[in-house]
């Protein structure tokens, strides 16, 4: 499913080169539940951006679902993101002017799904994350936990093979964070591939497989 081979991401800061990712290789199969853990500045977000096709590596090859992600245009990457990846961010990243259900519908709009079907799929996704009500509320009228549920529903709604979470519990208190983690576990049980990025070892421990990242290098934990 996901195959990273000798990936480098190098940022140039004047004369200095920062190796945000330094010779990273990683293989993730379908239906896995992987967490990537590392301290701040270790390269987690950089790795997530590359995995999520928001960015391309400086060196190395990334094969996603058997296809090489290289030399793609912005629009082609957008299409891959739309079809293959569901993002869940630390800061929820919902559009404040749209209602919960409209936020969930958004990826389907960019997929040109007709309105009636969009509604139906969005409702189903919201029900899956336990948010059958309050779907017409604006994000500001929802609690942090509810907002993150909306964000997860948005990640789910296109039924993508991979769900990528970047510190999805980082902005939530531990009780609500646990509830959100339960949703991810549920989704995994239903057959989704889940990759969580975190600096919290308690969160990481709930995954089936833990990968440690330190100074841009990956270490598998067994």
């Amino acid at each position: 499913m996901i195959d990273l081979k000798n990936i480098y991401k190098i940022y140039k800061l004047g004369e200095n080169e920062v190796f945000a990712l330094n010779d990273v290789s990683l293989h993730i199969d379908r239906h896995e539940f992987v967490s990537i853990i590392g301290p701040s500045g270790s390269g987690k977000s950089t790795l997530m951006n590359i995995l999520g096709c928001l960015d391309v590596p400086s060196k190395g090859t990334y094969t996603l679902d058997g296809k090489l992600v290289a030399g793609k245009t912005d629009d082609e990457l957008a299409e891959i993101r739309n079809n293959m990846i569901g993002f869940v961010f630390q800061g929820f990243n919902l559009l404040p002017k749209l209602s919960a259900i409209e936020n969930v519908e958004l990826p389907l709009i960019y997929k040109n799904v007709p309105a009636a079907e969009r509604r139906k799929l969005a409702k189903e996704a919201l029900e899956k994350v336990g948010l059958g009500e309050r779907i017409n509320h604006k994000p500001t009228e929802l609690s942090g936990g509810q907002q993150q549920r909306v964000a997860i529903a948005r990640a789910l709604v296109t039924n993508p093979p991979i769900i990528l979470g970047d510190e999805p519990t980082g902005n939530l208190d531990s009780k609500v964070g646990k509830e959100v983690m339960d949703i991810f576990k549920d989704l995994h049980a239903q057959g989704n591939t889940i990759i969580l990025i975190t600096h919290d070892s308690d969160v990481a421990a709930q995954a089936k497989r833990i990968v440690r990242i330190q100074d841009g290098k990956l270490y598998e934990e067994s």
Partner: peptide, 16 residues
């Protein structure tokens, strides 16, 4: 800008 970033992340193309 942030709204545009979110839209692009979830699949909006330049044209959209």
């Amino acid at each position: 800008t942030r709204e545009i970033g979110i839209r692009k992340a979830i699949g909006a193309k330049r044209r959209d």
